[in-house]
Design a protein around this nucleic acid. Sequence first.
DNA 1: CGCTTCTTTCAGAAATTTGTGAAGTTAAGG
DNA 2: CCTTAACTTCACAAATTTCTGAAAGAAGCG
Lengths: 164, 164
Amino acid sequence: MTEAAGGGRDAEAVSKFVESFAAQLVEAGMQRMAARVFAALLSSDKGVMTSAELGEQLQISPAAVSGAVRYLAQTHMVSREREPGSRRERYRVHGDQWYEALTNREAVLKRWEAALREGVSSLGADTPAGRRMAETLAFFEFIEREVAAMMERWRAHREERFGK
Amino acid sequence: MTEAAGGGRDAEAVSKFVESFAAQLVEAGMQRMAARVFAALLSSDKGVMTSAELGEQLQISPAAVSGAVRYLAQTHMVSREREPGSRRERYRVHGDQWYEALTNREAVLKRWEAALREGVSSLGADTPAGRRMAETLAFFEFIEREVAAMMERWRAHREERFGK
DNA sequence: CGCTTCTTTCAGAAATTTGTGAAGTTAAGG
DNA sequence: CCTTAACTTCACAAATTTCTGAAAGAAGCG
């Protein structure tokens, strides 16, 4: 039977999922190693893995794990935790990592909006280009408000469906 | 006075906006040339430019313009039009290019969902990992529905604010 | 305190991506 | 049809990014 690292699970099936899901994430712009690490965590039994386990399963160096995890932690896709009384660190995916990640896109939007405001005022709000940029700006502001409301609804929906 | 290609506008102010907005788009994952071309169009007087004008303003080769425009057209950020009776092509931004672009992210979501479904069924819906993936899948499905509704609201909001 | 184990940082090799010039293709206009 | 203007494709050079091994840096444990 094909089972190993996962602890009694079909290692090949896991690997197949990891690589195919990671590929989709990469195509959408995520760094390759970050995508693979994230997918591995998502499909792990406990949703928690150590650096060594990740390196082993994905066949990558500790340095690569470190880089991937740093990125994932910054974007709130995984959290790091210290096993009490050990130098080992563990990385965990939550059920609501995407919720978190989406919420943090807000910072990106804010910067876009700032650049657009600058553009509107430097080109003139009464010019055709200025008006076009103002409308784009309005769209982003709208989205920002809506996404906040949407996340609120997701929380409700989730509790109802999966229980808190 | 600093004015030129734009046709009576402050070329330096335009260029400054183009580069700073493009930089933000690049940071969020867009290809550099595509970002610059898009920003140039957004800040152009008529919202329309020819390949030659773009190359001139951004100081890039026709090949680079071609590549950037291909990407932007695929993602529905700009549309191409043929000047009637001419070999010249013109590229245009609409007021609702982001609306379009966001709508087309749906395709990406669909692929992610497919990969997750595959994962759930190959690892087993009754395993911890399977349940985690199923919840992620539910989140995406929720987002997909919500985004559609949100875009509907944007159309209403937009008409009210800017007039159709 | 010092040993040991784990993680991070760093410099460089390898791979990938990006942009260009030049040739190729398409289509308008004589 | 042939010419010519415009866009696209292709091969390559340059720049950037990515991953690794090795060294340096923390932190538990004796």
